[in-house]
Simulated assay, not measured.
Amino acid sequence: MSIFPARLTRGDFAVSVDSLSVEVDARDSVTVIVGTTSGSRPQTLTMAAVGLPDGVTATFSPPLLAAGGSSRLTLVCGSWTPGGIHPVTITATNIDGEAASCFFSLTVAAPEREPGGARVWLHPAGERAQAGFATETRVTVTGGGAVRLAVRDAPAGSRVTFSPTVVYEGGRAVVWIFTAPDTPPGRYPITISATNARGQSGTAVFTLDVATWS
């Protein structure tokens, strides 16, 4: 759902991106710099991205900025994101509902997997949690026969559990990630793997954002 009104009037400011064509691999992330040009008066702009494919999450830093400033747009691509070229619209809107937009193309490269191995899908592919709290994702495995789930690169002091640990082809599992109270804030790419008896495996990356206490 859009955060700006359905009917927009053109603002006296402008918005642009540092690249008109952006490429990213599935299960990876990319950052785009969004710049704005100020108009005839000081105003605060709300940033939004429309047209992202399924499985891609967008985060503006900052999401609100004064006209004339810039924001970093980070796109995190899930393991199930469809490959191809996707047109994305960036819109900046002020408090009066006036807006300016720009466009770029996002090219997603579909993930490769070892022949005969499993393919791992995560939903969601990322979550945000405060230190000391838990978050979860659901794992779906296709191909590879019976596989054993495992995890690596979890934050220090955290605990990860699977239910169940062994999944059969086409099966599902739930993954709980329990962070420690002293887990440092930051972004942690956690790799979840599914390995069969022949040693063939597939992986997916879950992005955990650990937030500071406010």
Rank of each mutant, 00 (worst) to 15 (best):
1 M>Q: 06
2 S>T: 12
4 F>S: 06
4 F>H: 09
5 P>C: 13
6 A>Q: 10
7 R>F: 05
8 L>E: 09
9 T>N: 10
12 D>Y: 04
14 A>V: 05
16 S>D: 06
17 V>W: 06
17 V>S: 12
17 V>M: 12
18 D>L: 00
18 D>F: 00
19 S>V: 02
23 E>H: 02
25 D>A: 06
25 D>F: 00
25 D>T: 00
27 R>E: 15
31 T>S: 15
33 I>Y: 01
36 T>M: 08
36 T>A: 04
36 T>D: 10
40 S>F: 01
41 R>C: 00
43 Q>V: 13
44 T>Y: 03
48 A>Q: 13
50 V>I: 15
55 G>N: 04
57 T>G: 02
66 A>Q: 13
66 A>M: 07
70 S>A: 15
73 L>N: 04
77 C>E: 06
80 W>C: 05
81 T>G: 00
82 P>I: 00
84 G>V: 05
84 G>S: 03
85 I>R: 15
85 I>H: 09
87 P>N: 06
87 P>Y: 03
88 V>S: 02
92 A>V: 13
95 I>L: 13
95 I>R: 01
96 D>E: 15
103 F>Q: 11
105 S>N: 14
106 L>C: 09
107 T>M: 05
109 A>H: 11
110 A>T: 04
112 E>D: 15
113 R>H: 15
119 R>Y: 08
119 R>C: 04
122 L>I: 05
123 H>L: 11
127 E>S: 07
128 R>I: 03
129 A>P: 00
131 A>L: 12
135 T>G: 15
136 E>A: 14
138 R>E: 13
140 T>Y: 07
142 T>A: 09
142 T>P: 03
144 G>T: 02
145 G>T: 02
147 V>N: 08
150 A>L: 00
153 D>S: 12
156 A>K: 03
158 S>F: 10
160 V>F: 01
165 T>H: 02
166 V>W: 01
171 G>N: 12
171 G>I: 08
176 W>D: 04
180 A>W: 02
181 P>K: 13
187 R>T: 15
187 R>P: 04
188 Y>P: 12
189 P>F: 10
191 T>I: 10
197 A>K: 07
197 A>C: 12
198 R>H: 11
201 S>E: 07
201 S>F: 10
203 T>F: 10
205 V>Y: 05
205 V>D: 07
210 V>S: 03
213 W>Q: 04
